[in-house]
Nucleic acid binder design. Sequence first.
DNA 1: TATGAATGAGGTTTCATTCAT
DNA 2: TATGAATGAAACCTCATTCAT
Lengths: 212, 212, 212, 212
Amino acid sequence: MSPADMPQARGERRKRSDARRNAQTLLDAAAAVFARAGIDAPVRDIAAEAGVGMGTVYRHFPTRPDLVVAVFRHQVDALAATPAGASGENPENPYEALRSWVARFTDFLVTKHGLPEALHSDQAGLESLHAEFVDRLVPVLDRLLRACVDAGRIRADVRPLDLMIAIGNLCIGADTFPGYRARHMVDVLLAGLLHHAPAPTDADRPRTPTAP
Amino acid sequence: MSPADMPQARGERRKRSDARRNAQTLLDAAAAVFARAGIDAPVRDIAAEAGVGMGTVYRHFPTRPDLVVAVFRHQVDALAATPAGASGENPENPYEALRSWVARFTDFLVTKHGLPEALHSDQAGLESLHAEFVDRLVPVLDRLLRACVDAGRIRADVRPLDLMIAIGNLCIGADTFPGYRARHMVDVLLAGLLHHAPAPTDADRPRTPTAP
Amino acid sequence: MSPADMPQARGERRKRSDARRNAQTLLDAAAAVFARAGIDAPVRDIAAEAGVGMGTVYRHFPTRPDLVVAVFRHQVDALAATPAGASGENPENPYEALRSWVARFTDFLVTKHGLPEALHSDQAGLESLHAEFVDRLVPVLDRLLRACVDAGRIRADVRPLDLMIAIGNLCIGADTFPGYRARHMVDVLLAGLLHHAPAPTDADRPRTPTAP
Amino acid sequence: MSPADMPQARGERRKRSDARRNAQTLLDAAAAVFARAGIDAPVRDIAAEAGVGMGTVYRHFPTRPDLVVAVFRHQVDALAATPAGASGENPENPYEALRSWVARFTDFLVTKHGLPEALHSDQAGLESLHAEFVDRLVPVLDRLLRACVDAGRIRADVRPLDLMIAIGNLCIGADTFPGYRARHMVDVLLAGLLHHAPAPTDADRPRTPTAP
DNA sequence: TATGAATGAGGTTTCATTCAT
DNA sequence: TATGAATGAAACCTCATTCAT
């Protein structure tokens, strides 16, 4: 990733590195504006935040969805790149590995506002974000969950996709409801995966007819 | 409740009841359109769905957010009005009462799309929806949760507001991710509330601290 | 066509007639602006010319091409509605009938600037204008030409479509080249249809090899 | 004509010839793009076609119309430079000389799409194209026509400007109406110039006055 | 000198809101 | 009072043109 290891002509490089810096500036600006004003923020605002003209935005991201996707794909990639128990953290405790990765997932979602909301947007052109999210993260969660199930630690009726969406959803609302503790609720959700006593919740309710 | 059996100035009375009927028609139409096309659906579409002119919409709801708030306030009120365990259903099993009410809550949110999204919308004028949501539902959940805690059934570190938002969030995404099972994830979340420290299955978790 | 022969409620009629008048105003304004500034004139200019807001233009003509097509379809229809020798003008002189109709055609094209140019525009959405032009006018020209050919008056190697486009083309440029006499050139073109002496042009060139 | 055999200051000379080669490349590229995508093709596309940066285009042609004018001036010049009957081809058959030159004219217009359209464009800066067209070609046509008239071959009421514009116009529409036979219609137009009053077929037209 | 990134005016289209009928 | 036509502020996006490198 060092800028020196590209064996090209210097003149050409200079231009390109400028442009790349600008693209990064734009991504940062867009992330900031999205976090502040939502994914539907006008492109003009993003350009202003980045301190460039609108044309520059469109040079780097030909259409509005392209920009949105770029902003969040970046984040999704970063997430997928933390390979869960990769750092060798207690492979003999799969639930702890799950919790650890999910904590990182949650931190990411809570910090960089907007990704969960973006995933639920119905704007045309955001399908690839959708796909990216699923393709990159589901396999990770799948591995983590399967390990837990195999170890008999958690219930087997929760699919990775469901869990992933659920976690993403729980992270929505950090700035809409300032007091909302997203991380805590994710923890509760994970606790709900654990095997409880004989049966999850029914064991304690001997003769209470389950309300419809 | 028949509008004819009120012995007042008939013309005025008639008009007023007509207007009220119209308002209800509009709310229904708006709910339908919101569910179909999202909260950002054009006012014109709502007027068309209701079979009235746009002027009529604005007569009843001076501004667009007013209409949105009215639509969802209606639903929130309906929710708050069914206080679940209030009608005395197994007071000796508070967790079941909680589950029952939450199930109704969830059904509502899942069926009438849009409320959770609306709650997180940053559109001006929707703050009152916010407030309504909190003011009407938090007390209900508070009662239900407190009963469970008092009975020693669930952990005490979950606040009603957090739970309410979390459940609302889990219901987002029904049509964005068609396979997503919102109700199931709400169930998992509730399971996560239960004390399982003393539960038999806990024996298998040698040295993992449960708390966050 | 009298406004009285519509058996509807008066209130409804009033609105509709207003709107229709407005639509006509818009068509006139658009025709004027197109003549003055070309088919690519901004919609805003047309709205200004008509003295209405831009939204009004889009209410009546949902997209820009719709407006263009409406403006010129009107004219094409008027043209097709003059059924050539319909008024019984010397059926025994088919060439005269042809000249007469073409003269009307030419007058139309020259007066209402822009139709020929519009026909050659490659803007999306103008295909229907294209089709309209061909479908409505080719049959008329076909009848007129066939009569002439059957009477042995003109050469048989000119297709109605070619002639129609050629006449339309000759009418281009009234305001680009102020001195250009379109009508005259159309007349010359028609004269070129007539059978000349033994052979159109070769008879006079006894031993000149025809250039490729 | 080889750029190398000029014994001047080599560096400067080299540059100038480079620049000239570049200008020619640009003209060719622009002509190609105009033919492919119309006169309104983006400058960027032309630069790409020429394989140069956009700045290079603007170095040679300070403004867009300048480029358009240069492209077509080039073609007009080429046309005017082939004075047809000038090289003495059958001076005793002036009509054939006219036909021959017009055929070349037509081929040019049909092949290199865009010139006729450009002539009628109302874009600012294209007036000189206008003038060039008239100044260079009208004299040629004037000579050819006068010769024909003097020889008593064609009618005397057609001015060179009219004929030039008419021919140009007839060549419009090659790609809008794929079946349109422009060359054929030009032929018909030329046939219309011929005197046919004395021609035998005229006998059948009892009482139709020919003149406009 | 050549490049192509940046600029920003301008064009099309949408929709909340007003108001004449 | 209800209607829906009209309004016009934005939003997106496209280039002609400039200018740092």
